[in-house]
Amino acid sequence: MPAFPSLEDCFRQGTQARDEGRKLAENPYSLRTPQHREWAAGWCSTFDLDEDDDPESMRVKSGATDKDGRLDDDEGPISG
Rank of each mutant, 00 (worst) to 15 (best):
T15S: 10
Q16W: 02
Q35I: 02
D52Q: 11
E75W: 08
D68Q: 04
D52W: 11
G80K: 13
Q35E: 15
P28I: 00
C44P: 01
S79D: 15
K61G: 03
D54G: 11
N27C: 02
G14M: 00
C10A: 12
P5F: 02
W43S: 02
D48N: 11
L7G: 07
G76L: 09
P77F: 06
S6A: 01
A64F: 03
D48Y: 12
S6P: 02
E51H: 14
S57D: 12
A41W: 06
S30R: 14
D74Q: 10
R70L: 04
G63F: 00
L49M: 12
P55D: 02
Q16R: 01
S6G: 08
S6T: 07
F11R: 09
A17Q: 07
D19Q: 15
K67F: 06
T46M: 03
T65R: 13
S30E: 13
D66G: 08
I78R: 02
E20N: 07
S79V: 15
S6V: 01
E38S: 11
S79L: 15
R37H: 12
G14K: 03
G21L: 10
P2Y: 12
W43F: 09
D74L: 10
Q35R: 10
E8R: 15
F47W: 04
G42F: 01
A41K: 11
P2M: 08
I78A: 04
D72M: 10
D48Q: 14
K67V: 10
A17Y: 07
D54H: 12
G63Q: 01
R59Y: 13
D68W: 09
V60I: 15
D74V: 04
A17L: 06
P5H: 05
P77S: 07
G69P: 06
R59E: 13
A25F: 05
D72P: 07
A64R: 04
A64P: 03
T46S: 10
P77V: 04
P28W: 00
Q13N: 03
R59H: 08
A3M: 10
D48I: 10
A64N: 11
V60C: 15
K67W: 09
P28F: 03
R22Q: 00
V60G: 12
L31K: 12
D50G: 13
D9Q: 14
R37P: 04
P55F: 02
G63K: 03
T33E: 05
S62F: 03
R70A: 07
N27A: 03
E56K: 14
E38H: 09
C44V: 00
D52F: 11
G14V: 01
K67T: 09
A64Y: 07
P5C: 05
E38C: 11
D50Q: 15
W43G: 06
E51P: 12
D66S: 12
G69C: 07
M1K: 12
D66I: 08
T15C: 06
G14H: 01
M1G: 15
R37T: 13
C10N: 11
I78H: 05
T46R: 04
S62Y: 05
P34H: 08
F4D: 14
C44Y: 01
T15A: 13
S57V: 08
C10W: 09
P77M: 03
R70T: 06
P28H: 04
M58K: 09
E51Q: 14
A25V: 08
P5G: 09
S57L: 06
D74S: 03
E51D: 14
G76Q: 00
M58F: 14
G69Y: 04
P55E: 06
A40V: 07
D54L: 12
S57N: 05
H36L: 08
R12Q: 00
E8K: 13
D74P: 05
